[in-house]
Design a protein around this nucleic acid. Structure first.
Lengths: 153, 153
DNA sequence: TTTTTTGCAAAACCTTTGCAGTTGG
DNA sequence: CCAACTGCAAAGGTTTTGCAAAAAA
């Protein structure tokens, strides 16, 4: 199944603040690291480590994929990046600080629907009440059937 | 994080009916195929392709892992096997016809809690009402924090 | 006999590790 | 200067693919 993707609007990145945060956390601001950060901030949507290494398809200089993984990890540790998964492929990395999205995935047509976490508040409340579990859909999506595919299966 | 796993009770397998189903679907009943089926039916809990290939740790003859994957795929196509994921590791295969379980995963302590699908009926209803999505947690688990870890984070 | 299936080798895919050399602070 | 970081090569874990030989129907 091919996955479609509607990018959530992401507010203008603040690279300088991010660089400051790096220094505050004792991370060196190397060229490679800065490049990963720039790619993540420049991308309008979640991207794979490979896309970052490819310089977002030529928009930025290429990087070594090993360093990209290592830097995404560091940046995630200090809260500048988050990552999540849609299905089975490579992980997707986004700039933290951008609005958090959770995802509904249609197993039939492949639609990926980003939703605002508030839209899942009632869902989380029911899970908490019925099962005593604090659910989070920020790392794995909610799979199933979208409205259209549920109607015409 | 190490994952604990409480096996759901699985009713006595009916290998003969499964073999009949294979023939009905035009699948040949080869030794290798039968072995995969036996392993899946004999296992008291979901197992990886590798566990099947290893003969469940010596209980059964070993098989070639490539064939195991191919046969699990065929058996899943005709509805004798299901598979799902818990986190990032290898997929887990279970005999279809055994009671379906859905899973809650604790990101903090690694607890894996199998629940009966009926326990998620209200959850699914809210997702349907609020988002028009027919949710299924049979392929990916519901991640988050278990009751204990949510209390003491 | 004919079509499916097997077993092996090899590769694909995503991610991590080891290490010697480079660099930021 | 020196700990942190890089780039490369290599490997790890999971799953798929190609193909000639073997086996089911």
């Amino acid at each position: 199944v091919t996955r479609s993707y509607s990018a959530p609007t992401i507010e203008a990145p603040d690279l300088d603040a991010a660089v400051r945060a790096m220094r505050e956390h004792g991370l060196r601001v190397s060229a490679a690291r800065r490049l990963v950060l720039e790619a993540i901030f420049a991308a309008g949507e979640p991207v794979t480590a490979e896309q970052v290494a490819d310089g977002l398809g030529g928009q930025l200089p290429r990087s070594d994929i090993t360093s990209v993984y290592r830097n995404l990890e560091r940046l995630e540790e200090i809260g500048l990046v988050r990552h999540f998964h849609l299905g089975h492929g490579a992980g997707l990395y986004v700039r933290a600080g951008a609005p958090v999205r959770e995802f509904l995935l249609c197993d039939a047509c492949g639609e990926v629907r980003p939703v605002d976490p508030s839209e899942l508040d009632r869902v989380r409340a029911v899970i908490r009440q019925d099962l005593g579990h604090e659910a989070s859909f920020t790392h794995f999506p909610i799979a199933g059937l979208c409205r259209d595919c549920a109607r015409a299966p």
